Computed example of a mutant assay.
Amino acid sequence: MDTRIYWLAATVFLAGIDENICIGILPSIAANLHVSLASAGQLTTIFSCVFALTAFGLSMRFARFERKRLLLIALGVFACSNLLASLSPGYALLFAARVAMAASCATVILLATRLATELAPPRLHGRAIGIVFMGISGSLVLGVPVGMTIADWAGWRAVFVAIGLAVVPLGCYLAYRLPVAPPHAAIAWRTYRSQLAHPETLCAQFVSIAMIGGHFTLFAYLSPYLQTWLAPRPAELTLLYVAFGVAGVTGAWLGGWLSDRAGASRALRLCPAAFLLAMAALPLSGHALALFVPAMMIWGCLSWSISPIVQNYLIRSAPAAADANVGINVSAMHLGVALGSGFGGLLVERGALLATPWAGSGLVALALCFAWRSTRMPAPQHARASIKAEAADA
């Protein structure tokens, strides 16, 4: 595998920390800024909404620009927005900083995903995407627990300072290693419309929305959930996030591997079914740490498997529309995050924090239905239909 793919994964690692760090330090932010847990949780919701809108709009336009330059600009905005967050005197400015973070992170992740598939041969596309998404799940193994430790030691603001400074040497390295490539042809709106009008492709996008939405119904409020369900000490809470993150890294790799080996369509059906069982097992495991931790790790593993599976499925189904479908899917993933964190926030506001796993399981059941519908058409016919639609647009 091209080593540059791993450096792209490193950029996604930092973006993943930014996306998920508020989940780990949610109680600290709420207490310091004198807002409710649900209000602090909306920092994740707004991040995901802006991310989704940016990814969708950018995927239509970024082909007109040289990708290396655009990536470096995004990393610059990323660094500045984190430093701004660290200086926020109140909730409003932190909210605005999260908007800028989301836009830059969307750009970084979208570009990293597409550059990874361009650097890898077609037979390894699933694994290349899996490596990039290991950057996001890896942020849970190292980034979020380390961020929680920094927050306990120096306050939550120091976390954003550390993230903003860490991206500077990485940006310099990528400026040296990535080649300059000419811009691609712009993607017409008709291309997006044709893919969204295709039932199988659209259902695959809904798999991402529903499954990630179900996951974030609980995950966005995982810290208060764990504190209520298991009452762990701060050090134990950090270790629980480490366990979750280790499982997530494994899941990102496993999703890419399974998609290449078992076939994208079969993997698309298997992942939501297994995830539904894993998420429902969490409240059934009781308050015993010995039962809950394995169930949580299986849940974490499968939660990070779906993104490389769906993206590989979309790329293989309609190669000519890969840029459009990946852009739509990155948006769909973060619509799922916004849906789940918003839905979870409503439950938390109503005192139903412990019901979040069951509510999330309901959304995952919808994802399984969408996956089954998407793969009903045989793969060769699906691919021909997609390519035919692309030819008509051209």
Rank of each mutant, 00 (worst) to 15 (best):
residue 229 W to K: 09
residue 3 T to R: 11
residue 381 Q to G: 09
residue 213 G to C: 10
residue 114 R to W: 05
residue 102 A to N: 07
residue 255 G to T: 15
residue 213 G to I: 13
residue 127 R to H: 06
residue 108 V to E: 12
residue 97 A to W: 05
residue 11 T to W: 04
residue 382 H to G: 14
residue 88 S to C: 09
residue 163 I to P: 04
residue 109 I to Y: 01
residue 34 H to I: 13
residue 269 R to A: 04
residue 187 I to F: 13
residue 84 L to H: 04
residue 388 K to P: 00
residue 354 L to K: 01
residue 107 T to C: 01
residue 368 L to D: 02
residue 253 W to M: 12
residue 69 R to H: 07
residue 319 P to Y: 06
residue 173 Y to N: 00
residue 339 L to G: 02
residue 186 A to C: 02
residue 77 V to C: 03
residue 339 L to F: 12
residue 5 I to Y: 13
residue 304 W to Y: 04
residue 245 G to M: 10
residue 355 A to H: 14
residue 338 A to D: 02
residue 334 H to S: 09
residue 79 A to K: 00
residue 325 N to C: 11
residue 116 A to K: 12
residue 6 Y to L: 15
residue 369 C to L: 14
residue 313 Y to A: 13
residue 236 E to T: 15
residue 307 S to C: 03
residue 249 V to Y: 11
residue 236 E to A: 15
residue 47 F to C: 04
residue 372 W to L: 14
residue 27 P to D: 02
residue 30 A to V: 04
residue 65 F to C: 08
residue 14 L to W: 02
residue 66 E to Q: 04
residue 302 L to Y: 12
residue 370 F to Y: 10
residue 126 G to L: 08
residue 12 V to N: 08
residue 296 M to D: 00
residue 295 A to H: 01
residue 184 H to C: 11
residue 10 A to Q: 14
residue 276 L to R: 04
residue 219 F to E: 02
residue 310 V to F: 00
residue 393 D to F: 07
residue 75 L to P: 03
residue 222 L to W: 05
residue 384 R to A: 13
residue 172 C to A: 15
residue 15 A to F: 01
residue 345 G to N: 06
residue 257 W to I: 13
residue 378 P to A: 09
residue 1 M to A: 15
residue 266 R to C: 02
residue 253 W to I: 14
residue 71 L to G: 12
residue 155 G to D: 10
residue 173 Y to R: 05
residue 270 L to M: 12
residue 70 L to R: 02
